[in-house]
């Protein structure tokens, strides 16, 4: 659906995107993840034909974005970063205008406007002036606009930015619901979002792709040893030395003082297996109370931080 090869974009003085290569298959939901300024918006603008690339090629549904721009635009539904709408228009009026602009015929237009209003939960807002709507509803109007001409590909630039937690959840559900009929490329800098919505993540940093995989694989990619968190009521020093004695433990750190000691136990890399029973046995043996014992899951957040940090180091002077 999308084929990007060696995409480069240079603005006067700096390179926003460098040698980007990736493909997105039909029906996938792909998340574009990166800190602000990583080149997500630039890449999306190039995909939609709004900006030209400095170098490289982009094909969307088999059409070159430069030479067959009109074909490409007909195949794309785009929700830009700040979701700008004509605030003086009414919802239905706006969607009809956009649909007509995108070449829908009269009958088809009427049907589609009703369909997207229903799909995006705008049935009761049709007659409202866009400027009077809340941010969440405006975002839905933007999405309805992106959907109105039934594009094969949806490009959504930070679709949940500025929404409250409820609206974010509704937006995510909406996007997930689109996957059956559309290919979706969405960008975000919020990690739980890609974990919740995307099948595949492309992590972008300083204009390059630093990782591309499923959210769960990405987590495994950088797991260098399981960690266990435990809170035990025990004398600190004794607990530390006893914990270090457990076979397979590489490092033990204790936090907090007072009767309850929180220990973080890191396994040696060579060891696989669960050490939680060993910790439990240790507590039982000494008659210590145990109030928490869990495996520490690495969040995508940490993976992300690690990936983007690695990239930064070589460039530092």
């Amino acid at each position: 659906m999308i084929k990007v090869s060696n995409l480069t974009k240079r603005y006067a003085g700096h390179t926003a995107v460098q040698d980007l290569c990736f493909e997105v298959a039909r029906g996938e939901i792909v998340g574009f993840l990166g800190p602000n300024g990583a080149g997500k918006t630039t890449t999306m603008r190039i995909l939609t034909g709004y900006l030209p690339a400095t170098g490289g090629e982009v094909y969307i549904a088999g059409h070159d974005v430069v030479t067959e721009s009109m074909e490409v635009r007909r195949n794309i539904g785009y929700l830009p970063e700040h979701n700008a709408l004509y605030t003086e228009m009414r919802v239905k009026e706006y969607l009809r205008y956009r649909g007509r602009l995108k070449g829908l015929g009269r009958k088809r237009l009427r049907v589609r406007v009703d369909e997207v209003c229903e799909q995006c939960g705008l049935e009761h807002m049709r007659r409202r002036i866009i400027g009077h709507l809340s941010k969440g509803y405006r975002q839905r109007v933007g999405l309805a606009d992106a959907l109105v001409h039934e594009p094969e590909l949806l490009i959504l630039d930070e679709p949940t930015i500025g929404l409250d937690p409820n609206q974010i959840r509704q937006m995510r559900d909406l996007i997930r619901g689109l996957a059956s009929r559309h290919t979706v490329l969405l960008s975000t800098h919020i990690l739980p979002e890609v974990e919740a919505t995307c099948q595949r993540v492309l992590i972008l940093h300083q204009g390059r792709i630093v990782a591309s995989d499923t959210p769960s694989n990405l987590k495994e990619l950088l797991v260098s040893g399981d960690r266990i968190l435990a809170e035990i009521r025990a004398p600190r020093e004794e607990l530390l030395s006893e914990a270090r004695a457990i076979p397979g433990v590489a490092r033990v750190e204790a936090h907090g003082d007072g009767p309850w000691v929180a220990v973080e136990i890191t396994l040696a890399e060579s060891v696989s297996g669960d050490l939680r029973p060993a910790v439990f046995d240790l507590a039982v043996r000494h008659g210590w109370s145990l109030r928490e014992l869990k495996l520490r899951d690495r969040s995508l957040e940490e993976v992300f931080a690690e990936l983007t940090r690695e990239e930064e180091e070589p460039t530092a002077p």
Binding site: R45, T48, H82
Partner: peptide, 12 residues
């Protein structure tokens, strides 16, 4: 307003 972006990415 930024509406130029939606305008110019429509097939016109």
């Amino acid at each position: 307003q930024g509406t130029i972006e939606t305008l110019m990415t429509a097939p016109v």
